[in-house]
């Protein structure tokens, strides 16, 4: 569904990602793991157009999206979250989701100015879809609150919701449970499972090994920007290169 083909990214001589190739298959949960500084977030930034690859190509359903701008990538049905929870924190919860759905609609300048029939339909559709997503996230009661009033876990959920509201084909999650305690992590993990059940393909970056082993269908392991292993959790777990990269043992933690 999404294919990364021998992508390399250099920052002023420093190689962040080197000759990386992998594929995200429709309907799966793919995890990208690796030690700090392995280039995981850079991979997301390259896919979503925040960064341009030095060389290599990225395809979505055989369509070349290498070098497209972030909003163009998003409108191909690829949504993402950021490592540090990124929200529209001056706005209400429901506004955050409606913004996430906007590109699906035709709510432009003139339609809005003249309140055309199309505007009315799309405006209502946006609201409805946003409320639907809030239900899914378990945040329906908080729709009218401002973002800072939410707990950390709720904010993480909302961040996923902003990416999810537009019904993307692929959802890229950058450490969706970073900074959460075990209980909260479990709830968010459960949410991610439900996202997949809805038919959305998920690709996530994570540090928490236990969680990943239970959640992911496949795992790609990066170290120093290179892919050192790929496969089902059990295979990856026993891969010698992976164990070495994690200084032995930590994988089993």
């Amino acid at each position: 569904m999404l294919r990364v083909e021998s992508v390399t990214k250099r920052f002023q001589g420093l190689v962040a990602v080197q000759d990386l190739s992998f594929e995200i298959i429709k309907g799966e949960i793919l995890a990208i793991i690796g030690p700090n500084g392995a280039g995981k977030s850079t991979v997301f930034n390259l896919i979503t157009g925040t960064l341009k690859p030095t060389s290599g190509q990225i395809f979505i359903n055989e369509l070349d999206i290498t070098g497209a701008r972030p909003h163009q990538v998003a409108s191909k049905g690829i949504s993402r979250t950021f490592q540090t929870t990124s929200l529209f924190d001056q706005l209400r919860v429901i506004d955050n989701l409606m913004i996430g759905y906007k590109w699906r609609t035709n709510l432009g300048f003139w339609n809005t100015l003249f309140h055309t029939p199309r505007w009315k339909a799309h405006q209502a559709e946006t609201y409805q879809r946003a409320m639907e997503t809030l239900d899914f996230l378990g945040l329906a009661e908080k729709h009218d609150q401002f973002v800072p009033a939410l707990s950390q876990e709720e904010q993480k959920r909302l961040a996923i919701g902003i990416a999810l509201v537009s019904k993307p084909h692929i959802l890229l999650l950058d450490e969706p449970t970073g900074g959460l305690i075990q209980e909260e992590t479990d709830r968010v993990t459960d949410l991610i499972r439900r996202v997949r059940e809805q038919g959305t393909t998920v690709c996530l970056i994570e540090h928490k090994m236990q969680m990943i082993m239970g959640l992911a269908d496949r795992i790609v392991v990066l170290n120093y920007g290179k892919k050192i292993s790929e496969g089902a959790p059990a295979e990856v777990k026993s891969d010698q290169a992976v164990i070495e990269a994690y200084l032995g043992g930590e994988v089993h933690a």
């Binding site: 972030p70 998003a74 950021f82 990124s86 924190d89 913004i99 906007k102 902003i162 990416a163």
Partner: peptide, 10 residues
């Protein structure tokens, strides 16, 4: 409020 996020949601 958040230009990079706005960009990333299309």
């Amino acid at each position: 409020n958040n230009e990079p996020l706005a960009d990333s949601v299309g």
